[in-house]
């Protein structure tokens, strides 16, 4: 399968890329290409030009001011190697090894598949997304960036350039994913960040992906745990309440009822797994 015809642009710096994208609204930036190239082959997209941004210096992980700053072109592979709490584990669950070698975090969240893995972690982490255009740079909360399925808060002429997450030191964490077959998108994905003082839950953040149009926090489940002594009973209650935050649709990956129940199972698994760390 060939993609349709398109022109190809190799900018020398970010500014050139932004300028070209601003002037050609039907041009598309090409990062890892692992969503874009299949979409081209299937003729879902017919851009006039692809702008190769892979060569731009946006592949880095820096720890600064109690934040991890992750360049948009950092591959999933590099993120798995960066030991960022929760985010590295989540990256390791994306696709398969070859996909992780090419795919980038900026590409993934610009495409914003509602069943992608990163959103569960990013919503739980209160991540911020840096969106850059030629004249402007803005830092957006992931929660408002994730407007709807495949609909990130990016305007023509803008690119995601960086993702920022707090360091979450002394947190326990886990990302649990249910998939139909190895390497697939999630049927249900649950990300948990948990801080204990003694056996009392000091902070709890639970992010769900694939069960709504956008990633959400499981607020009911969090409420059930926060400030309480952690034990099996409370974990069971919280996992039950996680289902309140799920409004899945039936599709080839499973029925809505099944997915909803799996939210409970995976939330419990994620909490128990986090506690083991």
């Amino acid at each position: 399968m060939y993609p349709p015809k398109f022109g190809y642009v190799i900018p020398e710096n970010l500014n050139e890329a932004l300028e070209f994208l601003e002037e050609h609204e039907d041009a598309k930036p090409l990062a890892g290409g692992h969503s874009l190239i299949p979409m081209l082959k299937l003729r879902i997209l017919r851009p006039s030009y692809l702008v190769e941004i892979r060569g731009l210096p946006l592949s880095y992980v820096k720890k600064e001011d109690n934040m991890y700053k992750v360049g948009a072109l950092t591959t999933h592979y590099s993120i798995t190697k960066s030991q960022i709490p929760l985010l590295s584990d989540t990256a390791n669950n994306i696709g398969d090894p070859q996909v992780r070698n090419m795919g980038t975090i900026g590409g993934s969240i610009s495409h914003l598949d509602p069943s992608a893995d990163y959103p569960a972690a990013l919503i739980a982490m209160d991540a911020k997304v840096k969106v850059t255009s030629r004249k402007n740079e803005r830092l957006v909360d992931f929660a408002s960036y994730d407007k709807d399925m495949f609909t990130p808060d990016i305007n023509p002429g803008e690119l995601v350039t960086e993702i920022q997450v707090p360091t979450f030191e002394n947190y326990k964490f886990s990302y649990q994913k249910l998939e139909r077959r190895a390497g697939d998108f999630a049927i249900v994905g649950v990300a948990v960040l948990l801080k204990l003082s003694g056996d009392v839950v000091d902070d709890i953040r639970i992010g769900l992906t694939a069960v709504n149009n956008v990633a959400v926090r499981a607020k009911g489940a969090e409420e059930e745990l926060l400030g309480k002594k952690i034990n099996d009973e409370i974990i069971e209650k919280a996992s039950n309440r996680a289902m309140e935050s799920a409004n899945p649709t039936s599709d080839l990956r499973g029925s809505a009822e099944y997915k909803k129940k799996m939210v409970k199972v995976l939330t419990k698994k994620a909490i128990l797994n986090a506690l083991k760390r």
Partner: peptide, 22 residues
């Protein structure tokens, strides 16, 4: 469609699916 891996090659030291690389 980048599922099966039959086209896997090593590019700059890393394995990639060459059906999904221009």
């Amino acid at each position: 469609t980048s599922n099966c891996g039959a086209c896997t090659v090593i590019m700059n030291g890393k394995s990639v699916k060459s059906c999904t690389v221009l």
